[in-house]
Computed example of a mutant assay.
Amino acid sequence: MSWTVAECRELAEESLDEMPARWKHVRAVAELVDSWSRKGLVSDVVVKAAWLHDVGYSRRVIRTGMHALDGARYLDLHGLDAEVIALVAHHTGAWAEAEERGLTGQLAVFDAPEERNLDALTLADLTRGPEGERVTVVERLAEIYTRYEEQHPVHRAVTRSGLGLQATAARAAKRLSQPM
């Protein structure tokens, strides 16, 4: 059975009910991606992944501490489409965080998603702040640096992947005719 966008939204809201700020961010990312979908610029798969991309932050879902991996595993247990799971697993430079945490092999269990889908999700994630506000990619990366100490795996991962994330966002912005 293929999950609908509405069912993905419900699962995300239920998973993040204890995290109002995270829910605002997720809702803003998903609403942006949904606007692209209505214009025929991205598929429903990307909209579903946008709703679900941060479920791995939920206390009920955390296993490794890497939200992309924990979220993908959780969604796999719920039988979501492979491409949605792949997008959640690999979104926004997850490869770098997996390397920092020694989880590369565990992330590799999930196939790489289609590049254009991953680019679109990454752009949306990097242009909506922690409370759902519109931000530039540079502002979002700076916010992540301030949220995590220098020694934290996320800080180290974003330091390593930041230029690549900016390039990914630029590629998606050009393809989607969006600001970044």
Rank of each mutant, 00 (worst) to 15 (best):
I62L: 12
G71H: 06
L126E: 00
V47I: 11
A86G: 14
Y74H: 14
A169P: 09
R171E: 01
T168V: 13
R140Y: 05
V61H: 07
A96Y: 03
L163I: 08
L77H: 14
I62Q: 14
D54M: 11
A30T: 06
H91W: 07
S37K: 13
G71Y: 01
A167L: 13
W23M: 15
A167W: 04
A173S: 14
T104I: 09
E10H: 13
H91D: 10
V47G: 06
E139S: 10
E131G: 11
E139Y: 06
M1P: 11
I144C: 04
R73N: 12
D76I: 00
R171V: 01
D76K: 15
D44F: 01
E143H: 06
H155A: 11
R140M: 11
A30W: 05
G71W: 01
A112R: 15
P153N: 05
A6Q: 14
E115N: 03
E10V: 13
A49K: 08
L141Y: 03
L121R: 07
R116N: 12
W36L: 12
R160A: 14
A96W: 05
W51K: 13
T64C: 04
R63W: 12
V42L: 05
G132R: 00
L32W: 06
A82Y: 02
E131F: 13
D17K: 15
D54F: 01
L141H: 01
Q151M: 06
G40H: 07
V46I: 10
R38H: 08
P20A: 08
S37M: 12
E133K: 00
Y74G: 02
D125K: 09
G79E: 11
W51F: 08
W36V: 07
D44V: 02
V154A: 05
G132V: 11
Q106G: 00
W36S: 04
V61C: 08
K39M: 13
T136K: 06
D81T: 02
T92Y: 10
Q178L: 10
V135F: 00
A172N: 08
N117P: 01
L32I: 07
D125E: 11
M180R: 15
D34M: 06
H67I: 05
E83K: 10
A96G: 00
L176H: 06
H91M: 03
